[in-house]
Design a protein around this nucleic acid. Structure first.
Lengths: 207, 207
DNA sequence: ACCTGAACACCGTTCAAGT
DNA sequence: ACCTGAACACCGTTCAAGT
């Protein structure tokens, strides 16, 4: 008996008052949903990325999103892999493979920090597993093979370099570590660690 | 007018029917709350660690927990630092400092994996910052100074080693990375990475 | 195919009140 | 001091129904 009243209650918030009439399409697509999620993330942070808030921003009811993404987990996976698509692969010039590794991991680090709000999501998911993540892993593996590492060692090195890069980026955006005296330049520390690792990897490859 | 009905609704779940009478104390302490949280974590995983589920396990209403811990964030912080208390500090014998580093970080890795259900919480908080975390950082810093690193480099090395250790443990408990071909021995990879890092750190220290 | 209404089964936290 | 009752302001997701 109170349907009209209920209806008016759902529009208590100005942002949710639909500019569409009842049967009108919202014109959502997967891309528009992802774009909205990225904006929400950039403007209000990872805690504010909820299906309900995203729906409100897109001027639809929460359940409308399920026609375009596979729940919140699917939305996050799509978001993560899309962010990796922009990372440039180093030119396969006549250089040392270790220079290529350094360039690739630094570019990844930069891309992760550019999308710093995504980092907690990478951590929660322990890295990405989409098509673009695989592409970057394969490029790195090829560089390590070029440097003379046997396949088993190269697999380990990929793992270690990825952990270092995602981990460094994540900790750069978080609060300082316990032993951190506050004056740490995170980028410099990441690069120093990368040099140490690559020195160890290529040095041990010769031994 | 329906207060009695409401009351009966709150006891729909057998586990929530209090064995105490109305004015009786539950006898909670901070330690009992933390122990309950650890059990919940071990039995049902990180997603099941909610204030409400913890309260139910302890046979109290959710808000009773707030007399003993500082909200959920405080509970998690206490949990994390407690887990670091068990990590043994290496004996300061007449050995190479690099052996001490290796031992300390391996012990930390093992402790983190023993409490694997806590790892997502370390990641969410980007490491721990309690008293025990600081103690471990200081021990590591001293070892690096012994190895001849200048203070600025030693600070960087602590950061890099901690990122490697927490990161490796976290990824060991998660799903495999994109470039991971499934057959990875995570412990071996962690140790290999640790050797690479320590080789790079001490090698670069001499250069 | 796309979207809404309504509901289900949850969250963390606060405040006043009871013992 | 410790705990409960009740409420507030949220979550993600599902299902049937409307267009």
């Amino acid at each position: 008996m109170m349907d009209n009243v209920q209806l008016s209650w759902t529009s208590y918030n100005a942002a949710v008052v639909s500019s569409r009439t009842r049967g009108q399409r919202a014109g959502l697509t997967r891309e528009r949903v992802l774009a909205g999620a990225r904006e929400l993330l950039a403007e209000r942070g990872v805690a504010a990325l909820t299906m309900r808030a995203l729906a409100e921003r897109l001027d639809v009811r929460p359940n409308a999103l399920y026609s375009h993404v596979d729940g919140k987990a699917g939305l996050v996976d799509d978001l993560l892999d899309d962010a990796l698509a922009r990372i440039p692969v180093p030119h396969p010039g006549p250089r040392e493979p270790s220079d290529g590794m350094c360039e690739l991991m630094s570019a990844t680090y930069d891309a992760l920090l550019e999308q710093a709000d995504l980092l907690p999501l990478y951590l929660a998911r322990r890295g990405a597993r989409g098509a673009h993540a695989r592409r970057l892993g394969d490029v790195l593996l090829a560089l390590l093979a070029d440097a003379g590492l046997p396949p088993a060692r190269a697999d380990e090195a990929v793992h270690v370099l990825v952990v270092h890069t995602i981990g460094s980026a994540a900790f750069a955006t978080g609060s300082p570590l316990a032993a951190d005296h506050g004056g740490t330049d995170h980028r410099a520390t990441f690069e120093q660690g990368l040099r140490w690792l690559i020195a160890g990897i290529t040095g041990a490859g010769r031994a």
